[in-house]
């Protein structure tokens, strides 16, 4: 198995403050990789560096064997930002169509992808509504649909399930599994522990450092505990 994302000695500093400190991380392709940590731990910063929206102060990142940032690479990365970045004065469909037209896609394929992505997040019936009339959860789902629009090989989702009800969350996860089985690599950040269980591999982040990583069962065995939450607390405690 080749590595889809390789993060090498990445540090990030805002002014004097180090937000990320020598992060090393490898995401194998075809994995669902979870980045778990409390808010403010540096997950979003790391994710932005992976996509190329921000640059590391030290170190480098490679996605699909290409150094970040790279324009062609962005065609193959689907990014869902933590804050919904949508055009509120356009309809859901217009939003999806706009993002679709920024990627190299044939007209017919665009239509198919819009229909597919909308169906996936259960928004088909609301596509003609303006986004300003959407609820928070609906906006979140539309953002996810926009990230999937160009059928990317790598999905980078920053807290994708925040504000989404449990039923839909479940269906989104089952879709993520389906995408994984298609061979896609998925990186998800979350601060909810029960989502961590669903990942193939986990990295726990605290104060800009990775305190431990491995598959959920490996981590539990390593610490001899059955709950990941306990693992997080122990790993964090051990470090201090």
């Amino acid at each position: 198995m080749s590595s889809a994302i390789v993060i090498n000695e990445v540090s990030k500093r805002f002014g004097k403050k180090y937000v990320l400190n020598q992060i090393n991380l490898t995401v194998e392709s075809g994995q669902i990789f979870g980045l778990i940590g409390p808010s403010g731990s540096g997950k979003t910063t790391l994710v932005k560096i992976i996509v190329g929206m921000d640059s590391a102060s030290h170190g480098n990142v490679q996605v699909l064997n290409t150094s970040v940032p790279n324009l062609q690479l962005l065609q193959r990365i689907g990014y869902m930002a933590q804050a919904d970045a949508l055009y509120n004065d356009l309809t859901g469909e217009e939003n999806l169509a706009f993002f679709a037209s920024l990627f190299k896609l044939k007209k017919v394929v665009q239509k198919e992808r819009i229909a597919y992505a909308a169906e996936l997040v259960h928004l088909t019936a609301d596509l003609k509504k303006k986004v300003e009339n959407y609820s928070g959860g609906m906006k979140r789902r539309l953002s996810l649909a926009a990230a999937l629009i160009q059928n990317p090989d790598v999905l980078i989702l920053d807290e994708p399930t925040v504000g989404i009800d449990p039923e839909l969350r479940k269906s989104i996860w089952s879709e993520l599994y389906r995408l994984k089985n298609e061979g896609k690599t998925i990186l998800v950040t979350t601060h909810v522990m029960d989502e961590a269980e669903k990942c193939d591999c986990l990295a726990m982040v605290r104060n800009g450092e990775i305190i431990t990583s491995g598959s959920p069962s490996e981590l539990k065995n390593q610490y001899g505990i059955t709950s990941l939450e306990e693992v997080f607390l122990q790993a964090g405690g051990k470090q201090q």
Partner: peptide, 8 residues
């Protein structure tokens, strides 16, 4: 920012 996460 979202726009700049596409190949534009």
């Amino acid at each position: 920012e979202r726009l700049l996460a596409t190949p534009i």
